[in-house]
Amino acid sequence: MNILVCIKQVPDDSVEIHLNGEGAPDLANVTPVVNAFDTYALEMAARLKESSEGEVTVVCVGEDGAKNSLKNCLAVGADYAYLIKDDAFTGSDSRGISNILKNAAAKIEAETGKKFDLVFCGKEATDAALGQAGPMLAEELGVGVITNITEIALDGDKVTAKQETEEGYRTVETSAPCVVTVTKPEYDPRYPTIKNKMAARKKPIGDLAMGDLADVAADKVGEANAQVKTLKLYEPAKKEAGVKIQEETEEDSALKAVAMMADAKVF
């Protein structure tokens, strides 16, 4: 069982972020972390690996600082890690990123002599929330894709997954190799032990650049070739403070609430 997990380093989404004077997110004091949905993907991949005696490789398109996130991945179940970094990749949209990841996977397979059976991605990144990279990567690879999964099982080359939908859940099957995107399962990602952290520090992180990826489509990568562009960022409107209703009795509180809703023409 050979699994590839694609991660992205994003600003910590537990921190309230505001825009600076130039209209860009003020990230000066925000710690970058592994995208939350990617941590779920890695945990699911690690559990599948442990039940099937396989290996997990993580890859990230980013800058040198992303190596800290890759080290964290090595401490919680990943066996190998690669950083894909090149100035030519800066500003790539989901289409470009998926093309880069496809070629990175091919390069790693060629180097190791092992084909990836499954490719895991988070369902979306918490900084952009587009949710396109996983399906686009499947299109690039020419394989099936199952999105928004919370469980997965592998029997030979048959992949069975529990997919979350707006109406509930459904069971979906496809054949390996394939791509899956992961939403929050019923369990949380594991925490690294001190021993695993120390071991992760000693593990090398492979570096891949444009020159290593022979078939990258130059007309797909980079900001100039991005087909999806951010035109403007703005903060959501502040919610008005709520009204606390606390009359002498519960009946009086309910009557006052109904009267206030009637005045506001809620009904």
Score class of each variant (00 low, 15 high):
189 P>L: 05
165 T>P: 05
219 D>Q: 05
198 M>G: 10
193 T>V: 10
208 L>I: 02
171 T>Y: 05
190 R>G: 14
178 C>F: 12
141 L>V: 14
206 G>H: 01
218 A>W: 09
200 A>G: 09
195 K>Y: 07
137 L>E: 14
217 A>T: 09
170 R>Y: 05
186 E>M: 15
220 K>Q: 04
138 A>D: 04
150 T>L: 05
218 A>T: 09
154 L>W: 10
154 L>F: 07
177 P>S: 02
161 A>Q: 03
209 A>K: 08
168 G>N: 06
160 T>I: 00
220 K>R: 02
198 M>I: 12
211 G>F: 10
165 T>Y: 07
184 K>Y: 11
190 R>V: 12
216 V>W: 05
197 K>R: 15
153 A>F: 03
218 A>H: 13
167 E>D: 08
141 L>D: 12
208 L>K: 00
195 K>T: 12
207 D>V: 13
214 A>F: 10
181 T>N: 08
156 G>I: 00
181 T>D: 11
161 A>V: 03
200 A>Y: 08
221 V>N: 04
209 A>R: 10
214 A>V: 12
218 A>S: 13
160 T>Y: 00
144 G>H: 08
144 G>Y: 10
145 V>M: 08
217 A>P: 07
217 A>G: 09
152 I>A: 05
164 E>I: 14
184 K>Q: 12
148 N>M: 15
145 V>C: 12
183 T>S: 08
177 P>M: 02
179 V>D: 06
137 L>I: 08
188 D>Y: 15
149 I>P: 04
203 K>D: 00
161 A>F: 01
189 P>T: 08
195 K>L: 11
166 E>C: 06
177 P>E: 04
205 I>V: 00
135 P>E: 04
148 N>W: 14
146 I>K: 05
166 E>F: 07
171 T>S: 05
206 G>T: 03
145 V>P: 02
143 V>E: 09
147 T>P: 03
201 R>E: 14
196 N>Q: 14
206 G>L: 06
164 E>M: 15
186 E>L: 15
182 V>Q: 07
140 E>Y: 07
148 N>G: 15
162 K>E: 07
169 Y>F: 13
179 V>H: 08
153 A>I: 02
187 Y>R: 13
198 M>P: 09
143 V>K: 08
189 P>H: 06
172 V>R: 06
210 M>V: 11
141 L>T: 12
219 D>S: 03
159 V>Q: 05
168 G>D: 10
199 A>M: 13
183 T>H: 05
146 I>N: 06
146 I>M: 04
208 L>R: 00
155 D>C: 03
